[in-house]
């Protein structure tokens, strides 16, 4: 069974963190993963940096630019991750834009993911229908879970379709925005969380975008299986480095 599915079966709310691979320094990737697992994080999204991250706000853009300057590439990331399963057991997901994967070769990319022990992918600009028609069989051949996004604007019909082809969780984007542009949730978002909850989807939902502190984390996990923090974490390591990430994690969990 895929590590993501196993994790989703655990009877607890999940805390997931996104970070950009190769940021702040090229070799921070592996120590960060290890430290975050030790700190009690349930799942990680490793951002493969892209020159033109359309769905990301300024924080993740800046970290991507820096990571690319540091020399991060698909090849380098796989090299860094080659022994990761000797020390880390939480689910690992690569989040990246489609063009670098296309250039690497989609099948070769999937094979590499499987080889190093990556469990799933999030590719914001690979549309659900293109995935379904062209790439699904490749992902499944390598046991990878592809995670799809929904937003407050996604129609009920489309949510049902996305649910039907999801093999892991649904990434519920908290508001109509790029990453990092929210702080805390208002009535409108809570109503949206409730609306999705009442749809009784087969796939659990994990909420991301705009979660930055204990309050927003608690609001999100009250309404979903888990929550993902990205920009707030990037800001934290920008200011405090990668050593004390346990402090960040406990502040989110305990307030």
């Amino acid at each position: 069974m895929n590590r993501i599915n196993k994790k989703l079966e655990e009877n607890k709310k999940l805390f997931s963190i996104y970070f950009t691979a190769g940021y702040p320094n090229l070799d921070d990737t592996v120590p960060l993963i290890q430290n975050l697992e030790k700190a009690g994080v349930d799942m990680l999204e490793i951002g493969l940096p892209f020159s033109d991250p359309l769905a990301d706000g300024p924080t993740i853009q800046a970290s991507s630019t820096k990571a690319l300057k540091n020399g991060m590439t698909s090849e380098t990331l796989f090299e860094q991750l080659k022994d990761i399963r000797k020390s880390v057991s939480i689910p690992l997901i690569i989040m990246g834009y489609f063009n670098p994967m296309l250039q690497y070769g989609v099948e070769k990319f999937c094979a590499k993911c499987a080889e190093v022990g990556v469990d799933g992918l999030i590719i914001p600009d690979l549309p659900v229908d293109v995935y379904n028609d062209k790439y699904k069989t490749i992902f499944e051949k390598y046991g990878l879970i592809n995670v799809f996004l929904i937003t407050p604007q996604t129609s009920e019909k489309r949510i049902r379709f996305i649910d039907s082809i999801s093999k892991g969780f649904i990434y519920m984007v908290s508001s109509s925005s790029v990453t990092g542009s929210q702080s805390g949730f208002g009535e409108e978002q809570i109503a949206y969380f409730n609306r999705i909850k009442e749809m009784n989807l087969k796939s659990p939902q994990i909420i991301g975008f705009g979660i930055s502190d204990n309050l927003s984390f608690t609001q999100a996990t009250d309404h979903a299986k888990g929550a993902i923090i990205g920009s707030a974490f990037i800001k934290y390591i920008t200011n405090f480095g990668v050593k004390s990430v346990d402090k960040f994690v406990s502040k989110i969990l305990k307030g």
């Binding site: 359309l54 600009d125 996004l149 984007v173």
Partner: peptide, 11 residues
């Protein structure tokens, strides 16, 4: 061609 867009832009 096609439309390789994030879900946020789909609607």
């Amino acid at each position: 061609g096609g439309a390789y867009i994030p879900e946020m832009l789909y609607p």
